[in-house]
């Protein structure tokens, strides 16, 4: 329990540094620290599959973020301070934390999960699917359509990024069209 609190406080400190620092490269490195803290916490929460995935995704997203952050200028442009946005954000944080304190009295207590659905997976997962890893049994057998949807979403987003980053179209503006459609004037 104390270990979880220590790692979470480390992550809060990393988040504050990432939000408030002026240099963009420092902010990206602080986000990397938060991400690896999340990965470490997944490992201690008995979720080794997610810890491995989080490390890989974290390395890739750090590469992408550093590519954007060092694109040209990596210094924040905070010449005039936007008081309205700052006050709105701070008021929202206060209201949100107060709401969380009120709402978490009704949520199930920590380390005492509600296993109404997944108890069946734990009881019969090995017999029904033959997989020793129940997480793999859920994502590849019980909820395989979910994984298919995930693959579709990733394909669409990578396709979108590819289309956006393409520097020019395939056909030049001065190029003539090969075929003619529509009503010809002097046919």
């Amino acid at each position: 329990m104390l270990l979880f609190d220590i790692i979470l406080i480390f992550m809060i400190i990393g988040t504050i540094i990432a939000v408030e620092t002026k240099n963009m490269l420092s902010a990206v490195v602080a986000v990397g620290a938060v991400g690896f803290g999340v990965s470490l916490l997944f490992l201690y929460l008995r979720a080794p599959d997610i810890a491995i995935t989080q490390v890989i995704v974290e390395v890739l997203s750090l590469i992408i973020l550093i590519r954007v952050a060092t694109h040209v200028d990596n210094v924040a442009i905070e010449r005039r301070i936007d008081n309205f946005a700052n006050m709105t954000g701070l008021i929202f944080i206060g209201l949100f934390i107060a709401f969380c304190i009120w709402a978490f009295t009704d949520v199930i207590p920590f380390a005492n999960p509600l296993m109404r659905v997944s108890q069946h997976y734990l009881d019969a997962g090995l017999r029904e699917t033959g997989a020793a890893n129940i997480v793999a049994a859920v994502i590849l057998d019980y909820r395989a359509y979910d994984t298919l949807g995930e693959a579709v979403v990733i394909f669409t987003s990578i396709l979108g990024a590819f289309v956006i980053l393409r520097s020019k179209g395939k056909k030049k503006l001065s190029e003539e069209d090969d075929i003619t459609v529509g009503i010809l004037e002097d046919a």
Binding site: D5, L8, V19, A27, I77, G89, F92, F96, I97, F110
Partner: peptide
């Protein structure tokens, strides 16, 4: 309970970063 609250503090800081900062990379962060 305390773990949930610390986690929600991180969430609120992310929302603050998304609302109040004007740099696009800060918003992505």
């Amino acid at each position: 309970m305390l773990q949930y609250l610390l986690d929600m503090i991180i969430f609120a800081l992310g929302i603050y970063c998304l609302i109040a900062k004007r740099h696009i990379i800060k918003k992505i962060i």
